[in-house]
Amino acid sequence: MTIRNLVTALCVAAVVAFSASLSEAKDWNKLRVGVEGAYPPFSWMETDGTLKGFDIDIALAICAEINAECELVAQDWDGIIPALLANKYDAIIASMSITEERKKKVSFSEKYYSTPAKFVRKKGSGIEINEAGLKGKTVGVQRATIHENFLKDNYGEIIEIKGYGTQDEAYLDFTAGRLDLLLADSVALDDGFLKTNAGKNAEFVGPGYSDPKWFGDGAGIAIRKGDTELQAILNKAITAIRANGTYKAINDKYFEFDVYGG
């Protein structure tokens, strides 16, 4: 075989392999799931690089339920929707709240859990959650979240909002004393921060927020618009794992209460 033939053969092989990989995605016997990996207890990365957490277990349970091979793709939060739209994976299972704003770009399954948002302050700081108490305070929040939108729309004029790529970075900065308050999902804050050694000097303050205008209708699985078949499959899978006890087993592994919510 001459060099030229060899090169041609390699090119053909590459094109065939590439088009094969393109066409196989639509059967949903393989599901590529975008997850975050920096949002304990819903998802985190172990030091050896394995992904763990409630979202991860739900993703695996759903894949098992629909007999699909699961490929988990860890993706930074603020690029998680753009990467879905760019076809890097087919679904996002990353505690993403179902909001009107996001619905403009993606479709959602039914919710798979729903918990309120809360503020956290340093113990003894005495900060109260009202206009006067918040004035001039620095509040840490994860970038591109419902919590950031809520703060901007309601207190944007009177507080300084600091946006972080991950929730874990916000915890670091709170511990370092650069932040007066944190706003995030109450369960994430409780298990991911308050119950850890780093969060021992912090406490919840103020009410739980769940106004659908900002906080949506709970966390759902995001998919590309137009994947209606997948949407139906996922909704059926959520109902199924809720009914057959798989959801409860995962729930009880992480929480002492029902995170599915009312």
Partner: peptide, 20 residues
């Protein structure tokens, strides 16, 4: 590190518009 420089501002707007 939370600074709103040119890239930071772009990322904040992308976060809300999903238009990277």
């Amino acid at each position: 590190i939370t600074l709103l420089d040119l890239t930071g501002v772009a990322r904040v707007i992308v976060a809300r518009t999903f238009a990277p």
